[in-house]
Each structure stands twice: as structure tokens, then as C-alpha cells.
Amino acid sequence: MAGRISLKEVELKAWSSYFEDGLWDIFLGAMLLIGGIRSVTDYVWYTLLILPLILVLPLGKRLITTPRLGHVKFGPSRKARQRKAVVALIISVVAIFALLLLSNSGLALPPRMLISPMMAVWIAVIFGVLAYFLDFKRLYAYGLLYGMSEVIWGQFGKPVGPVAQTIIGIAILAIGLVVFVRFLRRYPLPAKGASDVKA
């Protein structure tokens, strides 16, 4: 028996298994895709598609992931990291909301060409912070991709910006679907009552 047990790796593996379902990737890719299509077409009602999309994560976890992986309660240190991720997300949403309010307030702001790189860096930083606290490495790459779409939009405007956003959204969505299918194959639904067993 090996003398070293890396408990940190054991915990990390348990935590990471919940990201093997690809649902986060599907959600983030679809958000970008819907945003891109809405901007290309100028059909505002496309925004309504975001509403059911928001349900993908909680419903997917409940109906697809948990029945295949089982139930788990993580320890206090993991819960603390989750709380920090939530705080970081709230701060970023508030900041973006504030920027949107400012841009609609009539105040003189720098042109999108200058704001875009700053937004891109901000987006990449937020994704990076979330990736760190959630130990979800793919978020680092998605942050860079999200930021890249923002820079392209700022530099080239319509229609190049929204098209780039759509393509990046499709790429992330495709990764999510591949991960999702792999997850379904790796973790088939167990026999009924597998999580209800008296030892």
C-alpha cells in the first residue's frame, strides 16, 4: 500500500466529477450563441431564449447528473470556496450592470473600441477567479474566448463582432455537448435503489 494518500486530490476528484457533465459548457456556449444571433438578427425576442437556458443548470444537475453520480455533501473548505465564487459572480454582475447603466445614461464614455479591451480583461479576470474558486479549469479558456469575442466586437463592430460571438458560442457549446455525451456513456443510470442500500 502506498504511504502517501493525497486527500486533497481525493476531494478534488470528487468535486470535479460534478463538472464532467458538460452542463456549464452548454450553458455558457448557448448564452454566447443566443447573444450573437440576437445581435446579428436584431430580433429582441431571441433574448427570451435565455430564460429557459437559465434552468439548464439546476434542472440538468437534478435530473441528469445527480441520478448518475449520486448525492454528496462537500466539506466546509469546499463550501467556503463556493461562497467566494458566488461573491465574485455577484460583484461582476453588479459591475457590468453599472457599466450598462452608465452607457445608457447619456454620459460621455470612451468609444466601444476602447471600452472593449477593458471589458475583455474584466471578463477574463472574472472567469479566472471563478475557475480558481470552483476548480473548473475549462473556465480559464472560456474566459479568454468570451474576452476575445468582446475585443473583436469592439474593433470591428457589426456584423463581424456578433458573428465572431456566435462562432465562439458554437465552439463552447460543441465542447459541452461532447463532454455531456461522454458523461452519459461513462455514468449510465444505475439500477433502481442503488443509492438506497443498507450496508
Binding site: L7, A14, G70
Partner: peptide, 10 residues
């Protein structure tokens, strides 16, 4: 040890 609890399937 690293988790607060887990079910049989997990």
C-alpha cells in the same frame, strides 16, 4: 474523510 457525507452511489 474529505466529504461531509455521500450516498452509496457516489
Amino acid at each position: 474523510y474529505v466529504l461531509e457525507g455521500a450516498d452509496f452511489l457516489f
